[in-house]
């Protein structure tokens, strides 16, 4: 199974099995779509850890998918620099145009939105990640143009 093979490779980089936990959670998320109970148990078994430990660690970190999400994940920054440069208007726009609330998913399952705490692009604020693509210097027109290319 690809999942176990990937975890084995990760284990080579760490002196003990728990060291591999954070990267293994990324692998599990890819395999299961999000971090479900089933995925915790699979990671726990692969790393020989209690499932509660796996879940306890996973839920500490904001960037894992803790619930099922849409096909595309929008991670929009609203921290100070992005706020000053107009990010709040973009949050409102996503609400009005797609019915997308922070932490929510569109009805058609196309987009999920997560509000971020600084993605290190303050010179090109406001900025966002869509999946792993980085987009900056956003405004109301540009954000819609960009999002329309994600089907």
């Amino acid at each position: 199974m690809e999942f176990l093979k990937e975890i084995e490779e990760i284990l080579n980089r760490y002196p003990d099995r728990q060291g591999a936990l954070l990267p293994s959670l990324y692998v599990a998320q890819k395999e299961y779509g999000w971090l479900s109970q089933e995925s915790y148990e699979a990671v726990a078994q692969a790393l020989n850890l209690p499932p509660a430990t796996v879940k306890g660690v996973a839920t500490f970190y904001a960037m894992y998918k803790h619930k099922p999400m849409g096909r595309h994940l929008i991670q929009l920054c609203t921290n100070v620099a992005c706020m000053v440069m107009g990010a709040e208007r973009l949050v409102d726009l996503l609400k009005n145009k797609y019915g997308l609330e922070p932490g929510g998913t569109t009805e058609d399952g196309r987009f999920s939105l997560v509000i971020m705490e600084c993605i290190g692009a303050c010179d090109k604020a406001p900025a966002m990640l869509v999946d792993t693509d980085f987009h900056a210097d956003l405004n109301e027109k540009r954000i819609i143009e960009i999002l329309e290319s994600y089907k």
């Binding site: 060291g19 970190y61 894992y64």
Partner: peptide
């Protein structure tokens, strides 16, 4: 080692905990 969105992991002892696979 890829973090997962926790500012506190920039603090060196939290970073170490995180590399060890902990909160």
């Amino acid at each position: 080692h890829q973090g997962a969105g926790a500012y506190i992991c920039g603090e060196e002892t939290a970073l170490i905990e995180s590399i060890e696979g902990k909160r």
